[in-house]
Design a protein around this nucleic acid. Structure first.
Lengths: 163, 163
DNA sequence: TATATTTACTTAACTAGTTAAGTATTTAAA
DNA sequence: TTTAAATACTTAACTAGTTAAGTAAATATA
């Protein structure tokens, strides 16, 4: 293990370390798909699983469920459609909406994909075995930021410092 | 708080939640800089601080210290140079190397920047007050992945499942 | 019923990272 | 001492997200 300046920075390095960690794991997943010759990309599993649970969902429902921006969802869905995993049906009642659902190809391949995802899930569980609270603490951070955004927190602390 | 499908996914949603969290905080920092009319970008503070500590550093030394790829460092440094925060001096002993150091402008503005960074640091400490182990657990994950990469872990678990 | 506002989705332009491949210099080896 | 390999940096092409602005349809209002 080489020197890690971000660790030396303590709390100030946390944000970048979180990004580094999630990037690292994301690229690993991409590698696994490549090695196993699976033609999907990381993060698509959210879409597969939510459409497995709910049959159909619109773009904005997904954006809300994942707490991602709508353009982010549009990009993911367009790629998945291009590779034949998603069928898009115009909503009969509201012509603005587009109902998304899994294609036959997606439904057929889903069980195979799920073996990969559960191996990934197991890997994470194994790494967390001694510190199962990590997810709870992650949730605590999410909730606190939901309640008061990080920039508000910084600005508040800046005002206090000025005094 | 709306439904959060990533939370429902448990361990499988962790990677994306880590990204979402670090993105959220990063955008907040950008907002703070904009509000305070500060002409720097998030993550530049690593560079300011490492060059404050060590006077000069090369591109590759930085890449190693931050555990980022060299192209990532090159991009950051080029932007910082363009805005006048970094001076680049060709190394006398090795013509491949470029020694980076803070410009006068950077040194002059540094104390002001540091008030912002310490407000940010304080904000993180405040959010973590009840779960100070979060950083330790983050470090544990980093170390485990250093020891055995996430894709190796997934492939190992896949093999076990097959049996 | 015509107009204004909201909602659903899309597009464009941006940030922040990656890998792969290219150039130039230095070091090691035959 | 010439050649091969490694190192330092750069460039190109890609992924994954953002915000801001645009279009079309639905809803609310005067």
């Amino acid at each position: 293990m080489k020197n890690d300046y971000l660790k030396e920075l303590g709390h100030l390095g946390m944000i970048a370390r979180l990004k580094r960690l999630s990037d690292n794991m994301l690229y690993s997943i991409r590698d696994v798909y490549r090695i196993k010759n699976i033609d999907i990309e990381p993060n698509w599993h959210f879409v597969f699983l939510i459409l497995k649970d709910h049959k159909t969902r619109t773009m904005s429902e997904m954006a809300e469920a994942f707490q991602l921006s709508q353009p982010a969802v549009v990009k993911i869905i367009n790629k998945m459609k291009k590779r034949g995993y998603i069928d898009i049906v115009q909503d009969g009642h509201d012509n603005r909406k587009r109902q998304l659902r899994l294609s036959k190809k997606a439904v057929d391949l889903l069980p195979m994909f799920e073996t990969i995802w559960s191996a990934g899930q197991l890997s994470i569980r194994q790494m967390l075995q001694d510190n199962e609270q990590f997810l709870a603490e992650l949730e605590s951070l999410e909730q606190q930021l939901q309640h008061k955004s990080f920039n508000e927190r910084i600005l508040t602390n800046l005002k206090c410092q000025e005094k």
